[in-house]
C-alpha cells in the first residue's frame, strides 16, 4: 500500500509531465524540417534562438519578469506586514480577501483592465476631470499596460509567503530591538527583513518565474506586439510549426527559470544553518 501511494502519482506524472518534458529537450537538439523534425544532435536551434530578434526578445522577457517580480514583491510587502503584525483577529479574513481574486479567473482580471486603461475608460475620465490630461489616453498596447496587468495579476501570490514569514517573527525579537533603541525603520531593515528573507525569496520565485512564460497579459493588454518569449513560443508551434526551434526556446525559458531559482536560493542560503 505505501508503495502504491508513491507509484500511482509517480507513474502518472512520468506520463503527463516528465516524458513530455524530455521530448521537448530531445526536440530542441533535432534538425528542423518542414512541419516536422528529424531527430539528431545539432545546436543550430539554439544558435537561432540566441541570435538577432530572438535574443532581444529573450532579454526583454527576463528584464520584464525580474522588474515586475520585484515590483510585486515590494508592493506586497507592506500589505503582508500589516496583516501579519497589526491586523489582529482580522488577519485571517484579510488574507482570504487578498487571495480570493487570485483564485478567480485570470482572464476576468486581465480583461477588466482592457476597459480601465482604454481611452474613455475610468482612468482616462478621472485624469481628464482632474484637469491633469488634455489628450485622450489610450494605454492599451503599451508596455505600461502589460506591466500593470502582470503586477496586478500576481500581487496576491506575492503577499502569501511574506505574510507567513512576518507572522512567524516573535514580537519579543522586535521588542528587544526597540529596547536597545532601534527605531521603526531600523527594526525593519536590520531585524525583520533579514529574518524574512526566505519568504521574500519565495514571493519573488512565485511571481517572477511564471512571468517568464507569460502569454495572456501581453496578448490582451500589449496588443500582441511587444513580443515576449511566451508569445514567440506560441508562434513557433502554432504558425511557423518549427517544433525544433520552438523546443529550443522552451528549453531556454527553463534555463532562465533555473538561473533565477538558483539566484533566489542563494539569497536564503545559510538561513537554515545553525548559528556559529
Amino acid at each position: 500500500m505505501p508503495h502504491l501511494l508513491a507509484a500511482a502519482p509517480g507513474l502518472w506524472l512520468t506520463a503527463v509531465f516528465v516524458a513530455p518534458l524530455l521530448l521537448t529537450v530531445a526536440l530542441s537538439f533535432a534538425h528542423p524540417g518542414f512541419g516536422d523534425v528529424t531527430f539528431g544532435f545539432t545546436l543550430d536551434n539554439y544558435r537561432t534562438a540566441l541570435g538577432g530578434l530572438y535574443a532581444q526578445t529573450f532579454v526583454q522577457t527576463v528584464v520584464l519578469a525580474v522588474g515586475c517580480g520585484a515590483l510585486s514583491v515590494l508592493l506586497a510587502m507592506p500589505i503582508a506586514y500589516f496583516i501579519a503584525r497589526h491586523a489582529g483577529r482580522f488577519a485571517g479574513a484579510l488574507l482570504a480577501a487578498i487571495l480570493l481574486p487570485y483564485f478567480s479567473s485570470f482572464l476576468i482580471r486581465v480583461l477588466s483592465w482592457q476597459v480601465i486603461l482604454a481611452s474613455g475608460g475610468p482612468v482616462d475620465s478621472v485624469l481628464h476631470a482632474l484637469g491633469l490630461l488634455h489628450a485622450p489616453l489610450d494605454l492599451i498596447g503599451t508596455r505600461a499596460a502589460v506591466v500593470i496587468g502582470i503586477v496586478y495579476g500576481y500581487l496576491p501570490i506575492a503577499v502569501l509567503p511574506q505574510y507567513v514569514v512576518f507572522s512567524r517573527i516573535p514580537r519579543s525579537t522586535t521588542d528587544a530591538a526597540a529596547d536597545l533603541g532601534a527605531g521603526a525603520w531600523r527594526r525593519f531593515t536590520s531585524v525583520v527583513l533579514p529574518l524574512a528573507r526566505p519568504g521574500v525569496a519565495t514571493a519573488a520565485l512565485l511571481t517572477a518565474v511564471p512571468m517568464l512564460g507569460e502569454l495572456v497579459v501581453p496578448q490582451l493588454l500589449g496588443g500582441g506586439r511587444g513580443l515576449l518569449l511566451g508569445q514567440l513560443l506560441q508562434t513557433q508551434y502554432v504558425q511557423s510549426q518549427n517544433y525544433a526551434l520552438g523546443s529550443a526556446i522552451a528549453v531556454l525559458i527553463l534555463v532562465a527559470v533555473g538561473v533565477l531559482v538558483a539566484l533566489l536560493l542563494r539569497l536564503t542560503r545559510g538561513f537554515d544553518e545553525a548559528p556559529r
Binding site: A6, P9, G10, L13, V16, F17, V18, A19, P20, L21, L23, T24, L27, L205, L206, V209, P210, L212, G213, L215, G230, L233, Q234, Y237, Y243, G246, S247, A250, I253, L254, V257, V261
Partner: peptide
C-alpha cells in the same frame, strides 16, 4: 517526489503546454 513537485511549481505553463502538445 518532492523534487517533481518543486519542478512543477516553477514550470512556466506555456512550456508544459507545448511539451504536452508535442507528446
Amino acid at each position: 517526489l518532492a523534487g517533481l513537485g518543486y519542478l512543477l511549481v516553477i514550470m512556466p505553463e506555456v512550456v508544459l503546454a507545448v511539451s504536452l502538445l508535442q507528446f
